[in-house]
C-alpha cells in the first residue's frame, strides 16, 4: 500500500464522486440518475478502504463498513427501479423532467 501516496487515491475518489454528482444532476433518465448515484457510493467505498488500510487501528472496520455500504446500495437500486417500473407502467415515460404532476 505504501506504493501510492494516500493523497493520489483520495483525489481519484474525489473525481469519481464529482463525476457521479454531475451525472445525477444532469441526466434526464431516472435510471441514469440511479447509475450515477452508484458511482458516488463507490467513491465513498474507496475512501473507506483506503483510510482503513493506512490510518485506522483495526484494519477490518473499513471493509466491514464497505460491505454495509454495498448492501445499502443494493437496497436503493432495488427500491428505485421498482418505482421506475411502476412509473413507466402508468406514465409511459421515465424522464425525470416529464414527471412533474406536483409542479404547477
Amino acid at each position: 500500500m505504501t506504493l501510492i501516496p494516500v493523497e493520489h487515491v483520495l483525489i481519484f475518489s474525489l473525481l469519481l464522486f464529482a463525476i457521479g454528482l454531475y451525472g445525477t444532476l444532469t441526466r434526464r433518465n431516472i435510471i441514469g440518475i440511479l447509475i450515477s448515484i452508484e458511482l458516488m457510493l463507490n467513491a465513498a467505498n474507496i475512501n473507506l478502504v483506503v483510510f482503513a488500510k493506512t490510518t485506522s487501528l483495526s484494519p477490518e472496520t473499513g471493509q466491514v463498513f464497505a460491505v454495509f455500504v454495498i448492501a445499502i446500495a443494493a437496497v436503493t437500486v432495488a427500491v428505485g427501479l421498482a418505482i421506475v417500473l411502476a412509473l413507466y407502467r402508468s406514465r409511459k415515460t421515465i424522464f425525470a423532467d416529464e414527471v412533474h404532476l406536483l409542479k404547477w
Binding site: I31, L34, I35, A73, A74, V77, L81, V84, L85
Partner: peptide, 16 residues
C-alpha cells in the same frame, strides 16, 4: 455489484 445490482439495472433498462 456486478452480479446483482447491474443485472437489476439492465433488467429495468430492457423493460423500459
Amino acid at each position: 455489484y456486478v452480479g446483482a445490482v447491474m443485472t437489476v439495472i439492465i433488467f429495468a433498462i430492457m423493460l423500459t
